Amino acid sequence: MMSPVAKKIVLKIITYLLAILIVIFALVPFLWAVSTSFKTNIDIYSLKPSFIPKPFILSNYTMVLENPKMVTYFRNTVIIAICSTIISLFVAVFAAYGFSRYKFPGRSPLLYSILFTRVLPRVALLVPFYVTLSNLQLVNKISGLVLVYLIVGMPITVWLLKGYIDALPAEVEEAALVDGCRPLQILFRIVVPMVAPAIAAIGMYSFILAWNEFLFPLLLAKDSTTRPISVGLAFYIDEDGIDWGPMMAASVLMSLPAIILFSFAQKYIVKGLSEGAVKG
């Protein structure tokens, strides 16, 4: 039989090997896309593909950046992602604090009904969203996409932030109330600073969710004035085939903002998600 020390060493080795395999599985497709974005068509369709581009070209990126439609798609994505994230955080702060600290009739059914909208498959929501936006005359408008993204992302943001607020000691708020603070002052001067890591985590989640969304804008955005870049990438596929070079270049450019933001906010995201899961 193996000794306890040997078992720990074997378990650690297996854990590291699995972690390495997962990292390779996640990184190789992205690194191959980066490599393809610097290749010529001859190199891309070569029978013996190589990871290192030969020759190394930048024309795919130039083609994307000089395409006015792609620039418009990128601008639309930035506007939609930022607006939906800011509004989502603003609403989530009030909703999560209300569900966490106030007891009112129908509180539990309402809370679970919010989460239930997240459980539904997105395909089941396409027709209701389209009919609703048509009645509101918001189809093919950026404001309509922001509204849809809010409805899709709001349940998880409220639940995450509520769990974080549940873990806060209520005595701090009670002391502030005794000192004469009003509810809004308690919320913005005491609670919000204490849940700042959770807000950063939820903000990043909402931003990435909006940045990568494809299904809803595919149906609700009908032309280049409102399409985000996730939908715009699909137009590199036509009856003549797939224009892999520019498509991979645009994909890399689309991924960079989310990667950069995630890198800077990583510690806040891990802390916010872990502490926000303490209570629910």
Score class of each variant (00 low, 15 high):
Ser3Cys: 02
Ala6Gly: 00
Lys7Met: 12
Lys7Val: 13
Lys8Ile: 08
Ile9Met: 02
Leu11Pro: 00
Ile13Ala: 13
Ile13Tyr: 06
Ile22Arg: 00
Val23Gly: 04
Ile24Ala: 15
Ala26Gln: 11
Leu27Val: 07
Pro29Val: 05
Leu31Tyr: 03
Trp32Met: 15
Ser37Glu: 04
Phe38Ala: 02
Lys39Tyr: 11
Lys39Gln: 11
Thr40Glu: 10
Asn41Leu: 06
Ile42Lys: 12
Lys48Ala: 14
Pro49Met: 15
Ser50Pro: 02
Ser50His: 08
Pro53Asn: 04
Phe56Trp: 15
Phe56Gln: 06
Ile57Trp: 06
Leu58Tyr: 14
Met63Pro: 00
Met63Lys: 14
Glu66Leu: 14
Asn67Cys: 05
Lys69Ala: 14
Val71Pro: 00
Tyr73Lys: 02
Phe74Gly: 05
Arg75Trp: 14
Asn76Met: 08
Ile79Leu: 13
Ile82Asp: 00
Ile86Ser: 07
Ile87Met: 09
Phe90Gln: 02
Ala92Arg: 01
Phe94His: 12
Ala95Ile: 10
Ala96Asn: 01
Ser100His: 12
Arg101Ile: 02
Lys103Arg: 13
Phe104Thr: 04
Gly106Trp: 06
Gly106His: 05
Pro109Arg: 08
Leu110Phe: 10
Arg118Asp: 13
Val123His: 03
Val127Tyr: 07
Phe129Cys: 08
Thr132Pro: 00
Leu133Ala: 12
Asn135Pro: 04
Leu136Thr: 01
Leu136Asn: 05
Ile142Asn: 01
Leu150Glu: 09
Gly153Val: 06
Met154Thr: 05
Pro155Ser: 11
Thr157His: 05
Trp159Ser: 02
Leu161Ile: 14
Lys162Trp: 08
Tyr164Pro: 11
Asp166Val: 07
Glu171Met: 08
Val172Cys: 05
Val172Asp: 06
Glu173Ile: 08
Glu174Met: 10
Leu177Phe: 09
Asp179Pro: 08
Asp179Ala: 14
Gly180Arg: 00
Arg182Pro: 01
Leu187Arg: 05
Ile190Pro: 06
Val191Thr: 15
Val192Glu: 03
Val192Met: 11
Met194Gln: 15
Val195Arg: 13
Val195Tyr: 12
Pro197Tyr: 06
Ala200Thr: 09
Ala200Ile: 15
Ala200Ser: 09
Gly203Glu: 05
Leu209Ser: 09
Ala210Gly: 08
Trp211Phe: 10
Phe214His: 12
Phe216Cys: 11
Pro217Ile: 11
Leu218Phe: 11
Thr226Ala: 12
Ser230Glu: 04
Gly232Cys: 01
Gly232Val: 05
Ala234Thr: 04
Ile237Tyr: 06
Gly241Trp: 11
Ile242Lys: 05
Gly245Cys: 03
Ala249Gly: 07
Ala250Gly: 01
Ser251Gln: 07
Val252Glu: 00
Val252Leu: 14
Ser255Ala: 15
Ala258Phe: 09
Ile259Lys: 13
Ile260Thr: 02
Leu261Asn: 05
Phe262Arg: 04
Phe262Asn: 07
Gly272Lys: 10
Leu273Arg: 01
Ser274Tyr: 07
Gly276Ile: 12
Gly276Ser: 14
Val278Phe: 10
Lys279Ala: 15
